Simulated assay, not measured.
Amino acid sequence: MDGLAGIVREAGRAGDRVGYFAALYRQVTVEVRTAVHGGLFDDGARMDRFDTHFGNRYFDAYDAWRRDQSGPRCWREAFGLLDDPDTIIVQHLILGVNAHINLDLAIAAARTSPGEAIHALRRDFLLINDILARVVVTMQDSVDALSPFMSLLDRVGARTDERILDFSVRQSREEAWYNAVLLAGQNEEEREATIQRLDIRAAVLARLIARPGSLVRPALELIRSTENDDVPAVINHLDNAMERSSAKQGTA
């Protein structure tokens, strides 16, 4: 969590869009830690290990990209658009979510509970996914405040993230469990082949998110033209999304 906070702080100082997803993910880790300390998981110590494995996947990808633009294909697709001024905020967020769910989540689960132990992880895995989904929904509300045209589309029911970006968080979470069980039962050579396959698939999805079809592009251009382009301000807004949501619920 301290590492994520450092990435968010540095990104805010530098005006680096890497802080967009890092802010989202930092809040996931805060919520997971709160759930662990609150005794919500069947095995809190196991979920601490899971959270560490999951986080290290992101840190390793981030370090590899910063070092020599290497790392998993799907993360390279995400990081490769950080300097693209035409990519909208929600695309940056979902590119990170895509890589972290469609590649990293299953790997972290299988490393936490290899072999037959994976089946005992099922309930806690679903709970951590519920936490992830709750943060993503809250972040969408936060993005609406930064992106007036996207907020308008929401109000008139003209779009969902799935329609615009061809990405379903719910479906990806379900597939991640299937892949976690698969990886947990494989030997090292089989696991490596499966991870390569998952990475390729996630990279294909990333390209669809980054460069959607011609029918969607005009909407994305309109969204981008109305978005807040103050990167440090956007990072700060996203990084406080859960706190604002909790405060709003407390006063409701």
Rank of each mutant, 00 (worst) to 15 (best):
residue 195 I to P: 10
residue 116 E to G: 15
residue 74 C to G: 02
residue 152 L to M: 15
residue 189 E to R: 10
residue 162 E to W: 08
residue 98 N to G: 05
residue 61 A to L: 02
residue 134 R to P: 06
residue 90 V to N: 13
residue 90 V to S: 13
residue 120 A to W: 13
residue 63 D to Y: 05
residue 190 E to K: 07
residue 95 L to C: 13
residue 199 D to E: 11
residue 197 R to K: 15
residue 142 S to K: 09
residue 69 Q to D: 04
residue 186 Q to E: 11
residue 85 P to A: 03
residue 73 R to A: 07
residue 77 E to D: 04
residue 167 F to D: 11
residue 104 D to T: 09
residue 107 I to H: 03
residue 127 L to R: 06
residue 76 R to Y: 07
residue 116 E to A: 15
residue 147 S to M: 13
residue 92 H to V: 12
residue 110 A to Q: 14
residue 90 V to D: 14
residue 128 I to K: 10
residue 124 D to K: 09
residue 121 L to K: 11
residue 108 A to Y: 08
residue 190 E to C: 07
residue 167 F to I: 15
residue 63 D to M: 06
residue 79 F to D: 03
residue 201 R to F: 06
residue 201 R to C: 09
residue 203 A to M: 12
residue 109 A to Y: 11
residue 134 R to D: 13
residue 66 R to T: 10
residue 112 T to Y: 09
residue 171 Q to P: 00
residue 131 I to T: 03
residue 123 R to Y: 14
residue 178 Y to S: 15
residue 138 T to Y: 10
residue 201 R to S: 12
residue 172 S to E: 13
residue 180 A to H: 02
residue 147 S to V: 10
residue 168 S to V: 02
residue 195 I to T: 14
residue 201 R to G: 07
residue 89 I to A: 00
residue 68 D to Q: 04
residue 87 T to Y: 03
residue 106 A to N: 04
residue 132 L to Y: 05
residue 80 G to L: 03
residue 131 I to S: 03
residue 75 W to S: 01
residue 177 W to A: 07
residue 208 L to G: 15
residue 187 N to H: 04
residue 164 I to E: 15
residue 148 P to D: 09
residue 127 L to V: 02
residue 82 L to A: 09
residue 86 D to T: 10
